[in-house]
Design a protein around this nucleic acid. Sequence first.
DNA 1: AATGCAAATGATAATTATTAGCGTTAAGGA
DNA 2: TCCTTAACGCTAATAATTATCATTTGCATT
Lengths: 131, 131
Amino acid sequence: MKRYSRKREAILEAIRSTKSHPSAEWVYAKLKPEFPDLSLATVYRNLAAFVESGELVSVAVVDSKERYDADLSSHAHFICQQCGDVSDVDIHGSRELDKLASEYLGAKVERHELIFRGICHNCCENSDIAG
Amino acid sequence: MKRYSRKREAILEAIRSTKSHPSAEWVYAKLKPEFPDLSLATVYRNLAAFVESGELVSVAVVDSKERYDADLSSHAHFICQQCGDVSDVDIHGSRELDKLASEYLGAKVERHELIFRGICHNCCENSDIAG
DNA sequence: AATGCAAATGATAATTATTAGCGTTAAGGA
DNA sequence: TCCTTAACGCTAATAATTATCATTTGCATT
């Protein structure tokens, strides 16, 4: 039977509170002050459970670290190759695409993800100054 | 100065020889018989160098393992969530998309990747038999 | 309120892909 | 042939994630 857990709730809320698509480590650091006895394992455990249950989505792995998103609407992402920042791109993927791919492959296509890569606005400016 | 290396050539050729989008480990296993003194570190080193130089592309990380592609044309991929198989989907991404995202973000968008996820044809059939 | 069961947790050891360090080998210009 | 150093093999190190297990705690039942 599934039981209530204040920490679990806080972990979900932490992801929901930001558009930065955080990592497990980020969540841990954010909640540690409020929950001094929080264990990193609990963060990993709950994040995995939330992805499993569909309440969170894994967006990408950036610098070897998995990044999560609580925004379940179909949208694209941009990843800065310099600073690792992950941001939303409001281009909505159509179910049509999944259908197209499904017919092409003869597979059961459940979803797709669209990821742009490049250098973000901030990093562009900074390299301007440096260069 | 860059020097010739038979092993390096073989590593690139191994990736080029298949549409399976192999991992470093796969390349190592494939070449080990022909090069008994091949080191796994050499495979990793050369794969990273090829990605750096643009001769290979990193497609995705599947089951914690990085997967490579020698097909540099812009195309999408499908990843089976059951068996980890990675296959091509001949939907070509347009430069228009990158431009759109670039304007949306004010960033320098270099490329994008489109990844479909689901259950591949084979795994669908097998689960039919099993169920 | 006390009790009992199993879910949830904390702490930490284990796992594992990848990278770094370092001494050796060998490509290829002089 | 000699010399420089790129490329290599070997292996230790790194680091994110997972597994293990003893303890804690939510909550249904008494």
